[in-house]
Design a binder for these strands. Structure first.
Lengths: 206, 206
DNA sequence: TAGTTTTCTTACCATAGGTCATTTTTTTCC
DNA sequence: GGAAAAAAATGACCTATGGTAAGAAAACTA
C-alpha cells in the first residue's frame, strides 16, 4: 500500500482510515482484508451540483460520505422530485433498488454541497464479502441499521402531521438546512415547498 | 435430529425444509449448520387474533410465515393504529426496531388469519451467524431485499395518490383482502378506513 | 340461528395541504 | 458589486382526504 505525498491522497487515506476504524468496531479484520479494502476504495472530492448517479443509467457505485451532503431522489411522471435520502457524514448512499435488482437507476444521487466521499464498486464490495467473510457482520450491521431507520421513517410518515415531521427532521438533521434548498426538505417530507414555507411561518410565530 | 410422527411436527419439518431449501439457493450450508437451523427453529400454529409481539414488552423472536397472514403495527398517542408490514407466505416479521436497538417493542405483531410460522430466537439467529458464517450471505440477501422493498414503499408514499397506492397494494398483495379488515389496509396506505371505502366505491364505478 | 358486536358505507361538513400566479429575497457568477 | 437567475414567501383559491355520526351489512358467538 503506497501513500503518496499528495494532499488529496493523504486526505483520502485519513478518511478511509476512519471508516476502517468503524469497521473494526464491529468485526475483526485480517491484514489482507484491510489491504483489500484500501485497494478498492477511492476518495473523491465532489463539488456542489454534481450528479454521482443518474436516473436511467447503469449503477455500480456505492458512496460513503466522509464530509458534506448528498441526496438521492426520483422524478415522477409530472417531473416532480421526491427525496428518498439525505446522506451526511458517515452515511452510505446509492441506488440500492437498481443494484439489488440489477436494473438501471431509478434514482438520481446529487451532491448538495462540496463533499468528500469514498467510492466503492458494488461488485468489489461483494468481492470483499466473498473473499473475506469476516467483513460480513459489518455489512449486516449497516443493513440492519438502515432497515430500522426506514421503518421509523415509514411510521413517522403514517402517523405524524407535516409540521411534526418537519420538527423531527430538524432534530435528525440539525445542520442540514445550510446545505439544502427548501424544496429538497419538502420533497423528503412529502409536502410542497409552499406548504413547508407556511409551516416555517407558523413555527416562527409560536 | 428426531422427526416424530406427530402430524404437527411433520408439518413443521416440511415447512422448515422448504425454508432451508431457500437458504441453500443462496448459500452452501454445512451439515452442522443445517442441523443447528433445525435445532433452533420451531413451528407454531397461530390462530387468528393472537398477538405474537406486544407493544411495550421485550422482543426476542423473529417469525417466518409459512402459511397465513400477520401484520405489525404501532399505536399512536390518539390510539390510532398504523400498519408497518403485512407478512404473508415467505416473509419475515418482527419488531426490528426493538431488536436492533435492544429496546422494548414499539410494534405489535398480530395474526390476521390462522397461520403457521417458524419461530426463531433473535439470539439464536445471531448464534448461527457467529458459529456458521456461511449463513451470512443469506441473511444479507434478506436484509437487502427488505431495504429495497422499504425504499419502494417510501417512494410510493411520496409520489402516489391514495387511490394509486391502493391499486398498487392490490397488485402486490392480490389475495390479502380475504384476510384483512379495511382498516388494516387503510392504516398501511396512510389513510382512514372511510377514505378507503370511498376509493373502493370510485373504483367500482369506473 | 338469533342476537350481539364489529365493520363498512354514506352523507355532511371541516381542514390540511396543493396549485397557480405574483412579489420579494437570496444566491450565483461575471 | 451588480445583473441575472434561482429560490422563497405570499395570497387566493381549490381539492383530496379527514372527522363525525348514523344506518346497513357482515362476522362472530352463544
Amino acid at each position: 500500500m503506497i501513500i503518496s505525498n499528495c494532499i488529496n491522497q493523504k486526505h483520502y487515506y485519513k478518511a478511509l482510515e476512519e471508516l476502517i476504524k468503524k469497521v473494526k468496531n464491529i468485526v475483526t479484520l485480517s491484514a489482507e482484508a484491510e489491504a483489500y479494502l484500501y485497494s478498492i476504495a477511492q476518495e473523491i472530492s465532489v463539488s456542489k451540483g454534481s450528479i454521482l448517479i443518474r436516473e436511467g443509467q447503469t449503477v455500480d457505485k456505492i458512496y460513503f460520505v466522509t464530509h458534506g451532503c448528498l441526496r438521492s431522489y426520483c422524478t415522477d411522471k409530472n417531473g416532480k422530485e421526491h427525496t428518498l435520502q439525505f446522506a451526511i457524514k458517515n452515511w452510505w448512499i446509492s441506488d440500492y433498488i437498481a443494484i439489488h435488482n440489477d436494473e438501471a437507476a431509478t434514482l438520481t444521487v446529487e451532491c448538495l454541497k462540496d463533499s468528500t466521499v469514498i467510492e466503492f464498486n458494488a461488485q468489489e464490495i461483494n468481492g470483499i464479502l466473498y473473499q473475506y467473510p469476516e467483513y460480513e457482520p459489518f455489512q449486516r450491521f449497516i443493513l440492519e441499521r438502515h432497515v430500522v431507520s426506514l421503518h421509523k421513517r415509514i411510521l413517522n410518515q403514517l402517523q405524524l402531521t407535516a409540521t411534526e415531521r418537519y420538527d423531527l427532521f430538524l432534530v435528525q438533521y440539525p445542520d442540514i438546512e445550510q446545505y439544502t434548498r427548501n424544496y429538497h426538505i419538502a420533497s423528503y417530507l412529502g409536502i410542497t415547498q409552499e406548504s413547508l414555507s407556511r409551516i416555517r411561518v407558523d413555527i416562527a410565530k409560536s
